[in-house]
Design a protein around this nucleic acid. Structure first.
Length: 542
DNA sequence: TAAGGTACAG
């Protein structure tokens, strides 16, 4: 058109901007924006909104906000576009604020505005607001397009785990479309009601709706939650038969993730090899699958291959490989990856990664590095504090443990049950009985709710190792849990060391009540008797 | 010839 010297009209521009939005061609869109008189985009609502939409579809939030701010006449579409933009970007609070501002400025929201704000309400778990919208639209005549509001409502309810409200609305729908089924199934999968997700998938097919990529993503997630191998195979077959495996990357990634999570790693790798195209999510799913099932070397091999294939690792990749390095004890590779994480800026934006790194260095016993990463975190939360404390405890750095623990008390940081076990185990290995008792006493006073039977078993173990089997017995008798096999077998070991036949017999009988014919219990008990008879025979007497 | 609901990775 331009070659033939025709000047584009506002209509041409609107069409071209729409194309830039759906193709993801931000450069072309920016070019059109820059080459024209800015008044073109400020006055006419249609073209201004087309430009706004182009920036939003390209994920250019700042530019979208700027276009919106410079608009002279904002109509309901302009407001809805920017509200939808923030709702989609998980900036729900911002979206809700804009929704309120829009009404203050005298613009009345329409169906589409409600759909946009419902997404924000769902993401921010604003259940009261969702209920308010629901009662507002309730009883209004249901036009066909308003099925979108119903679907958005079901989705928002599910995001707040209001499962029965979502189901009630779904059942009351006069007309359902495939999105209605998808949001319901997706909701069940997200709240962890995976069986229901699969049941509604069956019902959906019975009702005559074919699964689409959205449906497959949801049921793959449900199957992954359940580790349902048989159903995995069924879905795998369906996806291949539908031809979606070749056509839709989200579906193939969902499939890949499902197979990985269900330990079907061989199948996952085959699917990966057969993919017509791959993206970063395909790589991350495969790497995560290997890391989650402790195939750490394979995880790291894939990580190398991914980079050879010119994919830059992101926060998801790092999370898997950091764990793999830690568990493999691959400290130099781990440090290399740390450098990459700094290079890509992943650490500044992601708390999970920082904590994973603290944990990795703690596993290597490189506590200086662990402390350094911890100190540089954007903020320290309970998870990162626990990772650091565990590191010090596992390395037996008592003075650091004591110092850090006092910070837990001072700043009211929630102590993790597993961290507490690690600290107790440190005391077991250092044999500092008095310090351990003091620590346990503080635990009872400050963190009583997280005490488990394992912690009491640790305390009994401490006394047993110190040779005080009477105190150990008292802990077992008086702890607020039913003693388990682990408690008795540890205690029996302590009785063996002290050659305490009476308490040993007591432990043996209790252990036998819980588990019959356990070899370890019999060996320990017979050792006690053998030791005592040797003692008699050597004339030492009892 | 402007806006819309559902989906995949730590």
């Amino acid at each position: 058109m331009l070659c033939e010297s025709l000047s584009p009209s506002p209509v041409s521009y609107a069409c071209i901007l729409k194309a830039c939005g759906s193709l993801g061609d931000l450069n072309k869109g920016e070019q059109i924006h820059a080459q024209n008189n800015q008044s073109l985009f400020q006055k006419g609502k249609m073209l201004a909104n087309a430009l706004l939409d182009m920036y939003i579809k390209n994920g250019a939030l700042d530019e979208a906000q700027e276009v919106f701010d410079n608009l002279l006449n904002r109509d309901v579409a302009s407001w809805t576009l920017i509200i939808g933009c923030y709702a989609q970007e998980r900036q729900g609070e911002e979206a809700v604020t804009l929704f309120e501002r829009m009404q203050c400025e005298g613009i009345c929201p329409n169906s589409l505005s409600f759909v946009a704000v419902l997404r924000a309400y769902g993401n921010t778990k604003a259940s009261e607001c969702i209920l308010a919208v629901h009662s507002q639209v309730h009883g209004e005549p249901l036009y066909k397009k308003d099925i979108m509001i119903s679907n958005a409502l079901i989705n928002a309810y599910m995001k707040c785990s209001l499962v029965s409200k979502a189901l009630e609305l779904f059942n009351d729908l006069a007309i359902k479309d495939s999105v209605s089924w998808n949001v319901l199934i997706s909701g069940y999968a997200q709240v962890g009601h995976s069986e229901e997700a699969l049941s509604f998938y069956e019902l959906m097919e019975t009702a005559g709706f074919s699964p689409d990529p959205f449906t497959y993503a949801c049921i793959c997630k449900a199957c992954a939650n359940l580790c349902a191998v048989y159903q995995c195979q069924q879905i795998f077959t369906n996806i291949v038969n539908d031809g979606l495996f070749q056509r839709d990357i989200v579906t193939s990634n969902s499939l890949l993730d499902m197979l990985s999570k269900c330990s079907m790693l061989k199948e996952a790798h085959e699917v990966f090899d057969r993919l017509p195209s791959r993206d970063i999510i395909s790589w991350n799913s495969l790497i995560a699958g290997y890391a989650q099932h402790e195939h750490f070397a394979e995880a790291l091999t894939c990580f190398e291959q991914m980079q050879d294939d010119n994919f830059a690792p992101d926060a998801f990749t790092f999370a898997s490989v950091v764990r793999a390095c830690g568990d493999l004890g691959a400290s130099s590779k781990g440090q290399e990856i740390h450098v990459d994480m700094v290079k890509y800026g992943s650490l500044e934006t992601d708390m999970v990664l920082g904590t994973a790194l603290v944990h990795m260095y703690a596993t290597f016993g490189m506590l200086g590095e662990a402390q350094d990463v911890f100190d540089k975190l954007p903020f320290q939360d309970s998870t990162s504090f626990n990772a650091l404390l565990t590191g010090y405890a596992q390395s037996g750095k008592i003075e650091f443990v004591i110092e850090l623990f006092s910070k837990f008390i001072e700043y009211n940081i929630k102590l993790d049950s597993a961290t507490f076990s690690n600290v107790l185990n440190m005391y077991i290995h250092t044999g500092l009985l008095e310090d351990a008792q003091l620590y346990f006493k503080t635990m009872v006073e400050v963190f009583i709710t997280l005490l488990t039977i394992d912690h009491f078993n640790c305390l009994a173990d401490l006394f047993g190792r110190a040779g005080d089997v009477e105190k150990a017995a008292l802990v077992i008798k008086e702890m607020p849990f039913h003693s388990n096999f682990a408690a008795w077998i540890t205690f029996l070991g302590a009785c063996q060391n002290c050659r305490h036949a009476k308490l040993g017999r007591w432990a043996f009988e209790n252990a036998s009540e819980l588990t019959e014919k356990d070899a370890a219990a019999h060996v320990l008990m017979s050792n006690i008797y053998a030791a005592i008879s040797t003692y008699h025979m050597t004339g030492a007497g009892l």
